[in-house]
Design a protein around this nucleic acid. Sequence first.
DNA 1: TATTGACTTGGACAGCGTCCATCGTAGGAT
DNA 2: ATCCTACGATGGACGCTGTCCAAGTCAATA
Lengths: 136, 136
Amino acid sequence: MSDLLERLRGRGWRLTSQRRVVAQVLDGDHVHLTADEIHARAAERLPEISRATVYNTLGEMVSLGEVMEVSTDGRAKRYDPNAHRPHQHLVCSKCGTVRDVHPTGDLLAELPAAERFGFTVSAAEVTYRGLCPSCG
Amino acid sequence: MSDLLERLRGRGWRLTSQRRVVAQVLDGDHVHLTADEIHARAAERLPEISRATVYNTLGEMVSLGEVMEVSTDGRAKRYDPNAHRPHQHLVCSKCGTVRDVHPTGDLLAELPAAERFGFTVSAAEVTYRGLCPSCG
DNA sequence: TATTGACTTGGACAGCGTCCATCGTAGGAT
DNA sequence: ATCCTACGATGGACGCTGTCCAAGTCAATA
């Protein structure tokens, strides 16, 4: 059973079948799924679960810091259940696939082959996120 | 007159009034604008310019490497005319505003105050982009 | 100035995500 | 075990961002 689910329950979440299913789908995830993929997999177990619920549930998991959002440039966001372990992302510019990577040293240098997963890496970028003075 | 425009002209671009206006709007840009904002500003000078043309023109500038796309997590992409100078981005999670930053040393460390522009920075992330084995 | 292929137009369309009014239900109270 | 009620789920409408296409227009060359 899901670690994730245990952690959420511990935070006073009302446990519904929908939330349970979403957590289970995320839990076994090595690839990083889009909201629609998560919805499709969840619907295999709970046919009438709605898209809105999947979005709500994912959004809540993200704000609780249990799940991480990965935006893949124009495509659908992907959801990474690995929020507790620090890591970076390797994104395919064509299909949007995401892999976790754990680079060391100079982050803008080329990734070591062992971290490249067969990708042809063409760019590395650093983004800082926060609130600007007017939104702060 | 625009540097950007000169560079584009030098690459054999057919020069139209629409392209000229888009380049001019981008050129004076210290903030980073969305496609719609660029369209609005361009339309002040050339009222009947279409959205499609703005998108086409921006897309071409991006593939020529003259302009850089910045994706701001779910919101509209922003366009950065500063593509020739290496730099990273600081993005407001609420309104999507983007500033260029030039960090040195440990990229995941806190940004120095001089590079923070009044933002409250809460995260730094590194993204590697490329093609995965199946798309490669 | 005539020609022509590249560019522009605008409207339809698609993907991703949000919102809202309504209905259902988990979980505490009895 | 049953009741209550506030919180969650539903699904359909909506909005934003971006793409596509067929038809019309025009910059650049001869």
